[in-house]
Amino acid sequence: MDLLRIYDKRYESRLILGTSRYPSPAIMQKAIIASGAQLVTVSLRRQQSNLAAAQSYVALINAAQVDVLPNTAGCESEQEAITLARMSREIFATDLIKLEIIGDNYTLQPDMEKTLSCVVKLIKEGFKVLPYCTDDLVACKKLIDAGCEVIMPWGSPIGSGKGLNNPYQLAVLRQRLPEATIVVDAGLGKPSHATGAMELGCDAVLLNTAVAQAHSPELMAEAFCHAVKAGRYGYKAGAIQAQEFATPSTATIGMPFRVNE
């Protein structure tokens, strides 16, 4: 069976879904089911007046019977990220952590220097780190050398919906890092973007806004579910090489109405 490998866990679904920005918790729950996702991202924030909402959110996630992937979204320093990772591990009882350390507030581009340094520290503490990263090959290699089995290069800036800004670079990552689990995280807007990432050989996609902010999140979740499968099957099947000239699909030998030469 063709399973997604996230450290010691295996998943049939190659779509990881974010749980933020949905019109309502009920719509979020329907979208999770429609997407077929078995792993969803969650976060932590200060406990304030919306306590009831926080508790019902946890109940919804538990009811969906999916694994959770806590993130360190919003962190700008190693210390913030490490503290949030430790807090997440206690609350969610998982060693998995999606590490996000942002280096630029306009593009939300990850700070790769801080990310690498933080990866080293978190892995020493037994975390299974999924770093949000750029598509820089050397930076990604360093993350893997530090012990990351999974990397999460961006397709384009978070929430932009622009799709894959640099398909060539994702193909290079696949070619040069054959053992790594590559999850394209961020920037996908349409199902075809997910198909494109999967056709390049990426192992999975992580998306949130594309589903949550769609006119119908539930239907879009299902569309992405099919799109991810289509891209994966296409990659596994081995696509033909593109060429600059036409080749007839139907045999030309035996064509009627012509004089045999």
Binding site: G18, S20, R21, V42, S43, L44, A54, Y57, N71
Partner: peptide, 10 residues
């Protein structure tokens, strides 16, 4: 002192 709880995340 910071006390945090789960919220939706992407």
């Amino acid at each position: 002192l910071d006390v945090v709880s789960p919220i939706q995340g992407g």
